[in-house]
């Protein structure tokens, strides 16, 4: 259950990209999603990410992410629509609340809330994709050059995490049979029952830590200057994807400064499509961002393409 979202190597095209290229690509997505205010643009990003998540064989994980996010979306909408009084189209007017003023909900506020919710869903989809295609190993080995100790400690913690969980479940069983019923008693009593479980686990884990330290010591840890073992292939596909993301990003920035992708909700919402360029720029940005998706599809279908990229 706790491992459902852990990275799994499935031999996908998207997983074979160089971590730097992939991270640059995802970063562009992140920036655009936070930059854009126009619902149409956000919708396009969402659509693209949906396709990418499916391409990464992550339907289940993605649905899980979205389901988890829906509650927050509703919360965002409620907060926004209750708080904002800048909208001009009031659709509900409630009683006055002390210290707060009159409650009212405007169509624009609701609209803005929905857009914020959509932005949140885009973010979720983006990170779901990240979890599917970037392995922690690759990410951390990329960072190891900058901060050796922090990365090594995080790597060790990640490797030790499943051990702790497994020990936890086993010790819980052991204690259940020693007469500890974890599901009974008042809250305070239950917390106290956990204290025995907790103590065993903490002691065992820290003893393991001493053993690990010994093994590190025996393998010359901290014995002087060290080097880094890192090996990631850079293929033509990485160049293409990097070019695509950078191109899309530059174009998006240019568009942003010329007003494309911006959007005013208050006092009255803008029209969604101001001119043809609004759609044109969006299409071009999406094209740049969909290069990995297209390559992935082609890579699966044509052996010829496979050998070239």
């Amino acid at each position: 259950m706790w491992e459902k979202l852990f990275y799994r190597e499935k031999g996908l095209f998207l997983q074979s990209l160089h971590p730097a290229a992939m991270l640059a690509y995802l970063l562009v997505f992140l920036l655009l999603c936070l930059l854009y205010e126009n619902p149409l643009y956000l919708l396009a990003l969402f659509f693209l990410l949906a396709l990418l998540n499916l391409e990464a064989e992550g339907r289940e994980a993605w649905e899980g992410f979205l389901k988890g996010g829906l509650l927050l979306v509703v919360l965002i909408m409620v907060v926004n629509s209750l708080v904002i009084r800048a909208g001009s189209t009031v659709i509900w007017s409630g009683p006055a609340v002390p210290l707060w003023g009159k409650l009212q909900v405007s169509l624009e506020a609701l609209y803005y809330g929905a857009t914020s919710g959509l932005r949140f869903l885009v973010l979720l989809s983006l990170f779901c994709l990240y979890n599917l295609v970037v392995s922690p190993d690759k990410l951390l080995s990329l960072l190891a050059g900058f901060a050796y100790y922090s990365v090594l400690a995080v790597v060790l913690a990640t490797r030790f995490f499943p051990v702790v969980v497994r020990n936890l479940l086993r010790i819980k069983e052991v204690q259940e049979l020693r007469g500890v019923d974890f599901n009974q008693g008042t809250l305070w009593e239950r917390v106290q029952k956990y204290s025995s479980l907790y103590g065993v686990l903490l002691l065992s884990s820290l003893e393991d830590a001493m053993g690990i330290a010994e093994s590190m010591q025996a393998r010359a840890f901290g014995s002087g200057k060290r080097t880094l073992y890192r090996h990631h292939l850079w293929r033509p596909r990485d160049t293409i994807c990097l070019a695509g993301s950078l191109g899309a990003f530059s174009l998006a920035l240019w568009g942003w400064f010329h007003g494309y992708g911006r959007y005013e909700f208050y006092p009255e919402a803008d029209v969604l499509i101001k001119d043809a360029a609004t759609v044109g720029i969006l299409l071009l940005v999406c094209l740049g961002l969909s290069l990995p998706l297209l390559l992935s599809k082609g890579w699966k279908r044509w052996p010829f393409l496979r050998s070239k990229i």
Partner: peptide
């Protein structure tokens, strides 16, 4: 910054890492 400053012994590093794993769990 944390990972750059000074050097760490194997005991310090593994103890902190295991504590982090424990908290994460």
């Amino acid at each position: 910054g944390w990972g750059r400053r000074g050097s760490m012994t194997s005991k310090q590093l593994s103890l902190l890492a295991v504590l982090a794993a424990f908290c994460a769990a």
